[in-house]
Every structure is written in C-alpha cells, then in structure tokens.
Design a protein around this nucleic acid. Sequence first.
RNA 1: GCAGAGGUGGUCGAGCGGUCAAUGGCACUGGGCUGUAAACCCAGCGCCCUUCGGGGCUACGCAGGUUCGAAUCCUGCCCUCUGCA
Length: 420
Amino acid sequence: MTSSVPNHTDSKQLETRSETRDSKLNATFDLRLATCDFRLATFFSMFEILERDGKTRARVGRLTLTHGMVETPVFMPVGTAATVKAMPHDYLESVGAQIILANTYHLYLRPGDDRIARLGGLHNFMSWPHALLTDSGGFQIFSQRDLISTSAEGANFISHLDGSRHFFSPEKSIQIQQRLGSDIMMALDECTSYPATHFEAARSLDLTLRWAKRCKQFHAGRQDGRQALFGIAQGSVYPDLRAQSVEGLQEIGFDGYAIGGLSVGEPKQAMYEITGQCGELLPENSPRYLMGAGTPPDLLESVSLGMDMFDCVLPTRNARNGYLFTSRGRLSIKNARYAEDPGPVDERCGCPVCGRFSRSYLRHLFVSGEILSSVFNTLHNVYFYLDLMSKIRQSIASQNFSEFHKGFLNEYVGGDLAGS
RNA sequence: GCAGAGGUGGUCGAGCGGUCAAUGGCACUGGGCUGUAAACCCAGCGCCCUUCGGGGCUACGCAGGUUCGAAUCCUGCCCUCUGCA
C-alpha cells in the first residue's frame, strides 16, 4: 500500500521533472484542452482511506476529483487571485502541489466569474490542469468585517477595490463557484471571529447551517458529479455548538466536511480540542478539512486528530515577508546575523533554493526588495510544507507516524533558529 | 576676485530665539503574520542612568559674542554650490 502514496517531493523526481519539462508542458497543454469541455468529464468526487495509523486518528486517503487524484493528508497552497503568489505553475508542479485554493469573492470582483466562464473556466483561464478548491467568500466575511454586513439572506459586501456594493447569498456563492468550475466548492459560511460569546457563536452557527442547506439545495439542482461541495462547521470554541454544527451538516449531507472558524486568534489548546472533537464526530469516510491551518506543528497535531486537508497562507505570505520554515524552526532571513552566512537556509532541505543559494544571498535579495526574493522564499516554503505532508503520509503508511511527529517537534523549535 | 545661496543626527531634508535630542522620508535593527485588501504591518533608532513617571550629559561647519535662554540673532574664520569676471 505504501506504493500508493507517492513521494511528490523526492529530489530525484524533481530532477526528472526538470529534465522532462518540455514534455510536461505539452502534457499540461493537452490536459487543458481535455478539460475545456466539462461535459466530457465523468468523474465524481470520491474519498477512500488507504491506510490508518494504529496509535492516532491519522489516516492516508485518496480523493478522486475531476482534475486528478489527491493524496491526503494534503496541504493546499493558497492561490486567492488564481495565483499562488510568486509561484510559477511549473514550480508548483515540480514541488508536488496536488491541489491549490482560489477565492470565490476575489475572483468574482476581479476579473469576474462571468469572464472566467467565457474563457473556459478557472482551470482553463489560469492554465492549471490539476485540482482546484474554491473558498466561498466566507472568510472575507471575517477578514473584511468592517466592510460587510450579514443578514439571514446573505452578506452585503463593500468592495475593497472600488467601494461598489455586492450581495453574496449562499446561492450566489455556489453559482459563482459553478462558473469557476472548481473541483471542490465550499459552502458559504460566516467565519465566526474570536473571541465570540456563546450567544454570538450560536447565532453565527445557526446562520451558517441555514446557508449550508441552501448551498446544498442550490447545488443539488445542478448536481452532475463534476464538482464536490463541502460544508463548513462553525461554533467557535464551544464544544456543544461544534457538535450541533457537525450534526447539522451531516443531516444535510456533503461530499466533505470542513472545520472553519479556527486559527483566528484562539489559544492553541482550544484549537486542538475543537479539532479533535470534530475529528471524532465527523463521518469516518468523508474527507475532513481544517481550514486556515496552520504552522507545521499545527499540521502534525491536526493530522493526528484525523484531519485530511489543510490550507494556510503562512508558507506563501511569510515567504514574502522574509520568514522561512526549516526543519529546525523558523528563520527570519532579514536578520543581520545572516548577512555573511554562506550556508543554505536548511541543510536538510532538498528544494532547489537550498541546493543552490546561501542565506547571505537570500538575505541580500530580501533586503534589496528584489522580486526574486519572493520567488525563492516562496518556493522554499511551499516545498517545505509539501515535503512535510509527503513525509507525514509515508510515516502513516509505514506505521511510524507518532515517532515522526515526535521527532519533528524535537528538532523544530518555535523560536528563531540559532545562528549556525 | 566680486555677487548670490548654503553648511542640521548614518543619509536626504524640515526647523529659523524658549514647547528641540531636533518633523518627515530613506537606511539600519528587531518583532508580528494561521480558509491573503499583506513583496505588508508594528516598534526602536545620540550616549548614560531609571522605582519606566522620568533624570543627566553631548550635539545643528569651527571659534567667539548678544540673551535668563541660541540649531535659530551678531562677528570672524573654514568649506560647498551657482552666476559674473
């Protein structure tokens, strides 16, 4: 069974990919043509569990989507505006990205879902032949709450781009995601901010559940198996509300279940407790997606609690802000101590950046504000995340996940890397 | 040589009698970032103490002077730029 869990980030595989770049580009082009007309597609969303860890709730699974199979646990790089910032597509492929995120609200505002639809859908538009997940816009209800008001009917947005007013109903969010043609659509939710009182969280959860039902109903009318729909649990840090949320979602029935409203400022302990609780309550045979998480230790902990899918802006955003992930912890490449450090960012990293460039050079690029700084730092961080997920899958398959988890934390220190 | 303009903290540059250790930008140093309004944001940035309220010292080309008080006014000197010879 181990063989069914490919190591997408094996350095030899990287070389191979690099050597066959031309043929790969051709394949990409062919795939793009093939996916141009969705009516030809016959895939349906499916999740199967391939391996289970004996000591924790961790499992290895395979998600079969319209645009390819996804091995879980999986980290999905965030590509809000139809681009994983600073990452060329072939870099994403070479690093083993199986599925990336895009954002419904942002793409609706610009360039517009109708335009993307006319250009053959999001896969075609951005020339990404692999799996795509679109977030519903629910997170923007949280992150742009000063510009948004919600009602039972939906969310009223004031565009951060030009001040224009827009209304997002659950139906509209799904309609846009259908036009985009993502492999996985997310139900429109209200991402509850933290802290929230029990009363506020209950109100928010109730709204989210009603919206979830409308999303499902709207999608059911057009259900053709090409796009999966995931529901999102809310309930802040209150176990009774989380239980209610998970139960409500299952009554409606989704292709997968996400945990939203975490990693929004709550204590780590609360985050892990709620994740663990949801891991137990969510259906065993459905993919479980912890939205917005997290740090490398968060990913390991959440996998052990039964989570299958993750997304987070940390590897990409932090890369652009000069913060690199290494096997020994974080490293702020802008620090003066690296000014003349000839060593690689992480001597144990197999990424092309660590294989070629010094900390000194990368610091220079960052300090100088060079574009390559963002490119290299992002490539390194995304590689680090995807490599970590690959190792997690392997360790689960070989029944030594707990040891791997422990060993990783032992090396990975929260503070800055000691100058070495 | 004559005429005019000017020399301010790492740098550019404001201030033009007290509220000035001196606005602001940059540079520098550190921190933050968890379904991306983020190549962003925050803080520090003369020296020495501090019970974190503050206190002391040294600083606006150099040297004097006026004044209770000078980066700011006066005198001399040094230097820079522009124009005319």
